[in-house]
Amino acid sequence: MACGSTALWAGETTWFCCGSSWGPCGSAGTGACGTCQSNAHQAAWPNTSAACFSITRPDLCGETIVQRACGSVMNVKHQCSGASVCVTVSDCGPRTQSFCGEATCCNGSCRTNRVIDLTPAAFSAIGNLSSGKLPVYIYE
């Protein structure tokens, strides 16, 4: 599936580990889709299914995020640098409801609420892992 350019959402991205890995990530498993790997360009989306949505609850933060199933492809672009990465949805997350109202800014412009999680491979393609989160636009 192609990596598209139609605007889908905007917000914060964080990063997470999954699949075979070292340290505490070694127990993370392959995620809700069963395919998640830290070293692949993949993402977790907070509405891969009704069951997923009931955990992440982005609606409690005012984010009526549309459902996209495992295997969906998205283009995630850093709000300021323009660096982008094409990712495949491979897990359910992040837990948006736990961090309602959190904002990440660059160049004086902020994005609010955690709306997507990226694997280390994907996140590091558009930013630094040590920052923990980035403001992004999401396309499909």
Partner: peptide, 8 residues
Amino acid sequence: EPMPSLDP
């Protein structure tokens, strides 16, 4: 101060 980090 999350700055743009990578050359697009």
